[in-house]
Structures are given as structure tokens and as C-alpha cells.
Nucleic acid binder design. Structure first.
Length: 373
DNA sequence: AAGTCGGGGTG
DNA sequence: CACCCAGACTT
């Protein structure tokens, strides 16, 4: 029995991969070359495309990313185009994808690349690592996939695959186990095909070595796997205890007016730094806990008296928050203006392409739906 | 080492 | 529901 965080060489020596690293690499790679999915960022040969895809894929599944990636590349085809854009345009493209800080990092890094690297992505692990938003995983992914360097990667898929292959017990996030995962990734990556090898590990985790019921009978490396041998591959890795989801309440008012070009809606940017920082939203008051804010509080936010009708309520779940929102609707005169420069009128047909979060999109859909009934 | 930060897919 | 996802960054 190996304890958590055993040295990499001991873990490797005690496994079925010992002395057969070449065979392991060949088995994994030939499966990958046969079974891999066609994805829009694969085989493009453009480090910028690899970078964009890897940032989008952070904590986000492949199927979700595909459309966003294609729209992004059409709008910002290269580093220079991204660097020249303003932040709102960047957030418009990211709208709905979540973790908006990633979009800001991508944008900021593009400026750094133009100003300090002559417009070319750094081609070393250390250079990539200096870019905002590029951590150990993403640096390894770009280095191996775009530049052919034998850099290791460890993501959620690799953790699961290695925990099973090598029977790594204990909390996979512990420092000791992280050292094991990174050490194994470094020891196993095929220097001839580092990018394909790394992608193969992740694709195996995503499609075969899945969390609940892994498809071991389809696995190209099951002969090397301690989890398969044990008969209980799904027992690893150990699942971490999740922190509690805190309740939140909010009141949002969808304020409309008839502008010269049809109906317009009042929106403003959220505070920087917090949840959904900088995204446009309807006038909203949020509160931690289960007590509802009052409509008056939204009115004072706007500096006006609001005559509004409640049109519904919806729930939105974040990873660590559960937010219930009461939605009101108010129509104001076409001459309505607001002293606070935070607020601005957006034509209804432009809202769907604005820099709004999925939550704001849901609120809008709900208010529209009630209008017609 | 623990918390923060979205959103969607899945059993 | 709960869990997970081609994580990074802050405290």
C-alpha cells in the first residue's frame, strides 16, 4: 500500500507502467489518433488559437466552448485584433461563458504580448507563465500543443486518470499528491509527441475514464491500470468535501422606455472586483442571506421613485451561491434620464449581444415572457 | 490550505 | 439534488 504523496519514482516502479513507458505511450497515442474528436482548435497550428481555447476550457467543458471559440476567432482573429479591442467588446464575446476574469486576463495578456513580445506568444514554459491567466496547466498545454515542448500538464482529467492508474489515495489536491501528479505527468509525457500525448490523457479522462462509471472495457491502457485491476476504478480519486452554498436574495427592476428606435432598457455595469464584475445588469440590489431587499432600495439606487409591477421570481445557482431574484418591471417616460452616469439605455434588440451574464439574460427572458401573457 | 469566481452537462 | 469540468489567483 502506497501512502499519499509517495515519491514519483516509487509510485512508477510499483505500477504496471514500470519499465513499459514506451508501450504505455504507444497504446494511449494510437487510441487517440484513432478516436479523437474533431475540435475547431485542433491542428490549426496557431499558438494564439491554442491559447484562446485553453483559457476558455478552464473549468469549462469542451461542448460549451466550441461555439464561443468560433465566434471569438471570427471577431478577434489574432493577438493584435484582441489587443486593439476595448474591454466591453471582449466581455460581449465572453457573455454567458462565465468566469469573466478569464476574458479580462486574455485581453490584458494580448496587450502585453503586443507591447513586450513583438506580438508573438512566448514560446517557453517560463515565458508563458508570466502572462496573466496562464497558470501551470495552461502554460504546459500551450507549450506542448502549440510549441511541441515536452511539458507536463495536470488537469481534472489527468488527476482522475493517474489516481486510478497508480492507485493514488487521499485528497488529490494535497500538496504531496499534487507533486506526484506533476511528477508522473513529467515522467510519462512522450517527448516525440508531447501535445498529442497530453491531449490524449485528457480525452481519455473525458470520454473513457469518467468520474462515475468508467468504460474500462474501451480503455486502451487498462492493462496498466491499478484501478481496473482492483475492480473498483470509480473509488478513486477521493472526492473533496464541498463548501456550503450560501443563500442570496436580490431585487431587479427591468426599466423600459420608448426611445426613438423602439423600446430601450436601462442597464449599468456591476461593481469591479466582485461577482460578475463589470458585466451589464438591470438596476439590482443584492443581499447575503434569505431576507429580501426592498424595491425602495433599487429606487434610491436610481435616484427616482419607481412604480413597478412584480413579474416573477427566478433562481440562479453559482458554485458557492444560490441567488433568488424578484423581478419587477417599470415603464418610464421617453424623456427619462438619470443623473448617475452609471446607467445607460440599450435598445432591446442589442441586449442579446451586450456584455451581460447568463443571470441577466434569464431575467430579461423572464420579463419578456410575462409581458406577452 | 481554503475561498473566490459562472455556467452548463449529467446521473 | 450533487458532482464535475483542458484552473488561476488571492488571502
Amino acid at each position: 500500500m502506497r501512502g499519499a504523496g509517495a515519491g514519483v519514482s516509487e509510485v512508477l516502479a510499483a505500477s504496471a507502467v514500470a519499465g513499459r513507458v514506451d508501450a504505455f505511450q504507444r497504446a494511449l497515442l494510437s487510441w487517440f489518433w484513432r478516436e479523437r474528436r474533431e475540435l475547431p482548435w485542433r491542428g490549426v497550428g496557431d499558438p494564439y488559437a491554442t491559447w484562446v481555447s485553453e483559457i476558455m476550457l478552464q473549468q469549462t467543458q469542451v461542448v460549451t466552448v466550441v461555439d464561443y471559440f468560433q465566434r471569438w476567432m471570427a471577431r478577434f482573429p489574432d493577438v493584435a485584433a484582441l489587443a486593439a479591442a476595448n474591454e466591453e467588446e471582449v466581455l460581449e464575446q465572453w457573455s454567458g461563458l462565465g468566469y469573466y476574469r478569464r476574458a479580462r486576463f486574455l485581453h490584458r495578456a494580448a496587450k502585453v504580448i503586443v507591447e513586450e513580445h513583438g506580438g508573438e506568444l512566448p514560446s517557453t514554459l517560463e515565458g508563458l507563465r508570466t502572462l496573466p491567466g496562464v497558470g501551470p496547466y495552461t502554460a504546459g498545454a500551450i507549450a506542448s500543443i502549440a510549441f511541441g515542448l515536452p511539458a507536463p500538464i495536470v488537469d481534472g482529467n489527468v488527476i482522475r486518470v493517474f489516481a486510478r492508474l497508480f492507485a493514488i489515495e487521499g485528497d488529490p489536491r494535497s500538496t504531496a499528491n499534487q507533486k506526484s501528479f506533476w511528477g508522473l505527468a513529467e515522467a510519462l509525457v512522450d517527448p516525440q509527441n508531447p501535445g498529442d500525448f497530453n491531449e490524449a490523457l485528457m480525452e481519455l479522462g473525458a470520454r473513457v475514464c469518467t468520474p462515475r462509471s468508467p468504460a474500462c472495457l474501451l480503455c486502451p491502457v487498462r492493462e496498466f491500470c491499478a484501478g481496473f485491476a482492483s475492480g473498483e476504478p470509480e473509488a478513486l480519486p477521493e472526492v473533496a468535501r464541498r463548501s456550503a452554498v450560501k443563500p442570496m436574495r436580490a431585487v431587479a427592476v427591468v426599466v423600459t422606455r420608448q426611445g426613438r428606435r423602439g423600446k430601450e432598457l436601462l442597464v449599468g455595469p456591476r461593481d469591479a472586483g466582485g461577482l460578475l464584475a463589470g458585466m451589464l445588469e438591470f438596476p439590482t440590489v443584492e443581499r447575503e442571506g434569505k431576507r429580501w431587499p426592498k424595491l425602495d432600495e433599487v429606487a434610491s439606487l436610481l435616484g427616482m421613485k419607481v412604480v413597478a409591477e412584480e413579474v416573477g421570481e427566478l433562481t440562479h445557482v453559482f458554485s458557492h451561491r444560490r441567488l433568488l431574484t424578484r423581478i419587477f418591471a417599470a415603464e418610464v417616460g421617453s424623456e427619462a434620464t438619470f443623473a448617475d452616469e452609471r446607467w445607460r439605455w440599450v435598445p432591446e434588440r442589442e441586449l442579446s449581444q451586450a456584455a451581460i451574464s447568463a443571470l441577466t439574460r434569464k431575467i430579461y427572458e423572464r420579463s419578456k415572457q410575462l409581458e406577452t401573457t
